[in-house]
Design a protein around this nucleic acid. Sequence first.
RNA 1: GCGGGCGUAGCUCAAUGGUAGAGCGUCAGCCUUCCAAGCUGAAUGUUGAGGGUUCGAGUCCCUUCGCCCGCUCCA
Length: 544
Amino acid sequence: MSSGTDSQAQCSTASDPASKSMDDIMALCKRRGFIYPASEIYGGINGFWDYGPLGAQLKKNLRDAWWTDVVMKGCNGKLGPDGKPVSIVPVDTSIIQNPKVWEASGHVGGFNDPMVDCRETKNRYRADHLMCMGEKGDSTGQIYAFIENDDKSFANALKKLSKYKKKDIPEDGVDICSLTELGADELTITVGPDAKEVGTLTEPRAFNLMFPTVIGATGDIETNKAYLRPETAQGIFINFKNVVDTTRVSVPFGIAQTGKAFRNEVTPRNFTFRSREFEQMEIEFFCHPDDAKDWYVFWRDWRMAWWQDLGLKGDNLILREHDKDELAHYAKEGAGTSDIEYKFPFTAPGFGELEGIADRTNFDLKQHAEHAKTKLDYFDNTRGELAKNGQPKGERYLPHVIEPSAGLDRGVLALLCEAYTPDPERASGVYMKFHPRIAPIKAAVFPLVKKGGMPEVAAPLAAELRNRFGHLGTIDYDEKQSIGKRYARMDEAGCPFCFTIDGETLDADSPNHNTVTVRDRDSLSQERISIASVGDYLAEKLGL
RNA sequence: GCGGGCGUAGCUCAAUGGUAGAGCGUCAGCCUUCCAAGCUGAAUGUUGAGGGUUCGAGUCCCUUCGCCCGCUCCA
């Protein structure tokens, strides 16, 4: 990253999230205006959150940092595995797309899995993962359910069946069928995989995690049904051909997008970590199938370093490679999937996902090419054997995709948790140790007291800084109450620098004439710098 | 969705079935020459919401909503 190394040093001490109280962090978020429960005056609405003044700016700063470093600077100028600059272009696609998009992507199928609950054990199973057995050639009596491809569950069901029939039944002495083939009355004589009682399984119910909506003012839900996107990725895939045809990109290149996505989570939980409306920052990076492994490693390692540079350090952030059996359907054949995970207070000592980097192979482009009956392959004229004129003949292929997909709200939450630093020594009792680059308030300007000409000097300085740095965040000005109280407020807001005009600033006889004090949030130390250099001082600290 | 716990001011908490309060914070004024000092004053509540019992409900009963924990799902 391009931001200054000195500001990184301020955030180098990793504090342990396990020792922090999530309740305290949520209370501060509410108290200082970072995050509020959505629709709070109406009693709230489960799974949704509103960002207040400080939170909105914090979130924007994180989104901007990503946008700048990834898209505009192409991984901050780091060269790709091919030794060339990384090429990324942005898009901003619609939240509502043709419903066929979600059929092609697998979301309609995958998000519609019927589930079965067991009233006795409270366990839940995917209906299509449950199998049932009865004695071969004897269709009377109870049916025993077990989990598909689970030897232990199978043996357990066989044991229960043998006991019920009062004789030893061999493994091949049973008839087996899928639970989804059973009727309602047959379920009443079925024993669940972990149950003792009969008839405790509910009928399979679909859990559609996509938000349905209706198109058209007079639209009918059955005929004009559409969905809010459950991920931003598909908007990129369906525009792959548009981008290739209308811009001068060539593989390897990436398409990036930030935006809202919606999932009807069964149980929203853990503050903003799992909410029903959330914002993603996604890159779909298209490359030749032979290069997928190299690009996967490149993105995985660079994304990890990026989060570390923003202040998520030490043991609090880990890179975790997925095991083969937890890979998503689209990633089975790829180079791998890894998660960048942060040790949130509510997951500690475990970790919660911040960003996933997956080799999606050509799964998505292939699906859309088939469902939309469109050619989405790419003609690469830098490959293939040489023609007589010495030029490559070119190669036609469906690019593979490396997807670094980050949760913006989760990123904000991780930054909040990391920044939260209890300190019984100071008046506020706590301060927010944000990296200066993402801090919502960049600096504050105070007159030491509200007299002696100090406000007349301080206010114009604040205005000057606001003019220069206002696009990055707030420049606060405050002349009310005691200086200590104002410092304490800035500590809770996470403002890294406070500039104070005092008597010496105005005293022409003082050696400190025309200087101000700078209070450092983290060290509490103060130094004097000339009032004319305040802007440059702040610029340097912000890594500009 | 299922099971358990909890809902009084922005926060922390009071109030025997009998007039809803305090501290902190916030805001205004005074004061204040470096870390929530002090003084004066102000605002803020359909006690989560809706029913019921009662002469009378923050308090007892029912329903519902929200939050927290576990199952499940997941960026």
